[in-house]
């Protein structure tokens, strides 16, 4: 009773199933990334263009510059804050630690989008007036 005989002795169903499962999981590995909403990450946009993208769970400090000014973004323990902004009102600094949503620095034209940019949950609003 050799291995070769055993392999030859498998039914067509066995073989179809094996190839099917391999194929499905193989496709799955490549497609799941596309289908899944992006995980939690920090996207920093300067003047409307994505300038930096970082995972939210990696601690780091980034200095971001635009034509209008600069600010320093600190990512730590899944939260983001602006530590040093060149703008006069420093609204973004006062916002403190943010774990989801956005920090926007209008004078410097820099926006920091925090958390998964997935579709809003049911019950969430699409926009807010006021």
């Amino acid at each position: 009773m050799s291995l070769r005989e055993t392999i030859n002795g498998t039914t067509a169903g066995d073989r179809v199933l094996f190839i099917f499962l391999l194929l499905v999981s193989f496709i799955g590995i490549f497609f799941i990334k596309e289908v899944l909403p992006r995980g939690n990450e920090v996207v920093i946009e300067v003047e409307g263009r994505v300038a930096y993208e970082y995972p939210l769970d990696s601690d780091r400090t980034v200095k971001v510059e635009s034509r209008y000014g600069h600010l320093t973004v600190e990512i730590r323990k899944g939260k983001v804050r602006v530590v040093d902004a060149s703008c006069p009102n420093k609204l973004c600094e006062h916002q403190g630690w943010v774990s989801s949503g956005a920090i926007v620095c209008l004078p410097n034209r820099i926006s920091i989008l925090v958390g998964s940019q997935e579709k809003p949950k049911d019950g969430a609003v699409d926009a807010t007036a006021g």
Partner: peptide
Amino acid sequence: AGDIRAFGLKPDGKPWKIGIK
């Protein structure tokens, strides 16, 4: 900012949901 204009329906067939501050 807070000035919003909506047209058409969302993919789920519902109107756009707008919050008032």
